[in-house]
């Protein structure tokens, strides 16, 4: 596929991911409202919010880093999405996954968080660094089970290439890593709760404590970019999980269904749990999820 076509397709892909990500956000709000017995906003409310933030007449920032932080955030989200193959076998939807393997994706995830953290910190509001310190602490702790799961999968497939990992799961749903290595999958799906930062792990934005946390000082188009980053990043994450554990997807509808299910795992957990304290959250991830991860790795070591 020529590069120009590739770029064109990836632009389409990014907009698709954005639309999907925002819609998922709307569905979440709707679901949460229904759980609480409310009618809830329309599903397209996130689109309106995005449009509203773009139609404001003034904007403020606190310096260079706080200006470009949303760029980091959005570039991080979009970048991760572009490095993950969405539909296997369709070159247009495999994005740029040939530029880097799973390790690249894992580390690219940090790109957006780091940039966002820098910008938020420059804004000078004390809630921002408090939120970031909680976020980084939690991030590092869910990284352990997630890393163990990734290592297990990579060793199992004999490769860090996401494509190879998908291909290793073909031939029926029992070959999915979700069932082939349930321990690693358990570790990773518990880590996923932390990654998505819904309750009980919503300690970064923690309403009633540090109201919105890091983005306290961001507004207008900056906030819109943050929303873009968040939406695409969410899609990238679930696509990655689909590739790693649910055997990837061969068609777009399949991808939609699988990713939707993965996402709602964290929503339904979030709807019924209150928030952890920061250290409880850290201890949680270093407890059972980590043990599951270690067991998953040992499973690979001893079964090979």
């Amino acid at each position: 596929m020529p590069l120009a076509t590739k770029i064109l397709w990836s632009i389409v892909g990014v907009f698709g991911a954005l639309a999907y990500g925002l819609a998922i956000g709307g569905v979440i709000r709707k679901v949460m409202a229904r759980i609480q017995g409310r009618i809830g906003p329309p599903v397209w409310q996130p689109y309106i919010d995005l449009g509203k933030n773009l139609s404001l007449r003034t904007a403020t920032h606190h310096g260079v880093m706080s200006f470009i932080a949303p760029i980091f955030r959005a570039a991080g989200g979009i970048g991760v999405f572009l490095l993950v193959p969405v539909v296997i076998g369709v070159p247009a939807l495999e994005n740029f996954s040939f530029s880097g393997d799973l390790l690249m994706v894992m580390y690219f995830i940090f790109f957006g968080s780091l940039g966002m953290a820098l910008g938020a910190a420059e804004a000078g509001h004390p809630h921002s660094p408090i939120g970031i310190s909680r976020g980084l602490a939690q991030m590092s702790s869910y990284e352990l089970p997630f890393a163990l799961a990734v290592v297990a999968l990579a060793a199992q497939a004999g490769s860090f290439s996401i494509r190879e990992i998908i291909l290793a799961q073909q031939g029926g749903w029992l070959h999915w890593n979700l069932f082939a290595n349930p321990l690693a999958a358990a570790a990773a799906f518990l880590a996923f709760l932390g990654m998505n930062m819904y309750a009980p792990f919503n300690i970064v934005g923690a309403p009633q404590e540090i109201p919105v946390g890091p983005p306290t000082e961001f507004n207008s188009q900056f906030l819109s970019l943050l929303m873009v980053g968040r939406a695409t990043f969410a899609v990238a994450k679930i696509v990655l999980y689909m590739d790693l554990f649910l055997g990837g997807a061969h068609s777009l509808p399949e991808a939609l269904v699988k990713t939707f299910l993965i996402y709602f795992w964290s929503i339904f957990v979030g709807a019924v749990f209150p928030r952890f304290r920061t250290e409880q959250s850290i201890r949680f991830f270093l407890g059972w999820p980590t043990l599951a991860g270690i067991a998953g790795v040992l499973l690979v070591i001893f079964s090979h």
């Binding site: 709000r29 906003p41 961001f218």
Partner: peptide, 22 residues
């Protein structure tokens, strides 16, 4: 914000920071 009146259905939401409020 409660189930009885539910302002969210009109797109109304509470924001804790003036930078993001209208």
């Amino acid at each position: 914000t409660t189930a009885r009146f539910d302002m969210e259905r009109f797109g109304l939401a509470m924001r804790p920071t003036p930078r993001q409020s209208n």
